[in-house]
Amino acid sequence: MGDGAASSVLRVVRPRCRDMPSRKQQDGELACLLSKIDSIYTEACDRLAVRGRPVTLARFHDAGVCIGLLDPVSNIMANTICTSDFRPDLREKVLVGAAVERKLDDLCRRSLEGLVAFLGFSLTSPASAPAFEAALALAAQIAKHPQPERLVRAWMSLSSRLRQVLALLREVQHHSPRENMDRLGQLLDDDPVVPPCLAIPWALAACPPQRIGSIADTPYQHTRSLRMVLLDTIHAFYLQALARLPSGELRSRLHRSLLRAGFCYGLMDDPASNIILNTIWYEANFPEEITPVLDVIGPKSLTRLVSRSFYGLVSFLQTRYHSLSEHQAVQCLVSTCGQLRAADPNFCAPGDEKAQQHR
């Protein structure tokens, strides 16, 4: 691994036939995912202390789906607490042993089905609020939430105050459920519902990647799973870039340069900013006299662009580090959220080079 004469030889990763997993592999992945969701519910149960409160436990099983704008545990807690004010007809009933397990298994599967339904939409900007609202409503219905309309109204109202909601939920173990229910209800009633601020969930979900000591020093996972995770990460970068580009210019001319040269790597630290910069640069240097107006960029075109960025990122790392396998390159990019600057321990932007020369 390292630089030198050998590193000038290109190692280009090219598309291959997509290998579909077997039914056994799909079942195994589903089981692992459900096990992960089950552990999330275990943590939410502990933080809400539902096992000692029959009414709260019933509400938890009824409405505690992990759908929302925060992390899954916080979503479960918020949905349980928000719904409790609006379910006064619930009767106390004690569930024990196998009955509790059956309820929890059902809740895990309902949440998974709701999450899958939600992912059919994109969460990118305030302009996408109607699509997001529809996605949230569909997810709540698929997850069999008892009051899907109430869940949608609650999250649309709380979207601009997610940090307050997080702070409240972190204190849930230090206050009674009733007190937390009342405080969360006050957040819902303080102000009229405003247009949702969907940039806040993006900011809360963003996790600054950490540089790693060795470019391949990450736990092993199957290559196909890693590739899919990285492709999904890159896809999210494009959704963010599309939300930030001016819609009129995007429809009239920038869609052409985006699809031809809007890659997610470049001089900027932020992949979405690289996409925007590359798109504008290509349009400025290679303009087209007549460009058809495009109402929407089709999913196949966007998938093709995501794949090209994927192969570009992996090819860069394998060209620079000849001992690096494709699996290790993808693994490294996944561990750093698809950001090349963090994935390459020897990456040095132009500004950094000047700073190092003065040291």
Rank of each mutant, 00 (worst) to 15 (best):
R244Y: 07
E249T: 07
C82D: 02
V229C: 15
V94K: 14
D217K: 15
L187W: 07
S7L: 05
T336I: 11
V229G: 03
W281G: 02
L95Y: 05
E149M: 08
F310I: 08
Q318D: 03
V193A: 10
L187P: 03
L258F: 12
H235F: 07
R256N: 14
L48K: 01
Q25N: 09
R53P: 01
E289P: 04
I40Q: 08
V306W: 03
F286Y: 15
F237P: 00
I37A: 07
Q318W: 02
Q356N: 09
R260D: 13
E29F: 07
K103Y: 10
V73M: 02
V306H: 06
I215N: 02
I290A: 12
L313R: 01
D344N: 13
H255S: 08
S122G: 11
S325D: 11
P345D: 10
A98G: 09
D89T: 06
V73S: 00
V172H: 00
A131Y: 08
F286H: 15
V194Y: 09
P196W: 01
R183E: 08
D232L: 14
L258S: 02
D190S: 10
Q240E: 12
A329D: 06
T218E: 12
C32V: 08
R109F: 10
A206L: 11
V296C: 14
V73D: 00
D62Y: 05
Q147E: 11
A58W: 00
I290T: 14
L317W: 06
L231F: 03
D89H: 10
I76N: 00
P287L: 10
M1N: 11
A284D: 10
L250V: 11
G97M: 08
L138Q: 09
T218C: 15
E249K: 13
L136H: 02
V12W: 06
W155K: 01
R109N: 10
A49K: 03
G97Q: 08
R161W: 08
S247Y: 09
L90T: 05
A261W: 14
I234C: 02
S8L: 14
K144C: 06
Q339N: 13
L188M: 14
R91E: 06
S22M: 13
P196A: 14
E326W: 05
P209N: 12
I290M: 11
H175T: 09
R47P: 01
S39M: 08
A6W: 12
P88F: 01
V73N: 00
G266I: 02
L95V: 02
R53N: 07
L34C: 15
Y41P: 00
G64L: 05
L242S: 05
S8R: 13
R87Y: 05
T233P: 04
A44E: 01
L69R: 02
L57M: 14
M156E: 05
H327K: 07
P21A: 13
C197L: 14
S273L: 12
H358Y: 07
A342K: 10
S307T: 07
L277V: 15
S257P: 06
T83F: 06
A129R: 11
Y265H: 07
H255Y: 11
S315R: 05
P21K: 12
T83G: 06
H174V: 08
H145C: 03
V293M: 13
G266P: 03
T279I: 04
A143I: 02
Q240M: 07
L169V: 04
A63Q: 01
V100Y: 11
R224S: 09
F347M: 08
S125K: 05
A129I: 08
P21G: 15
K93F: 15
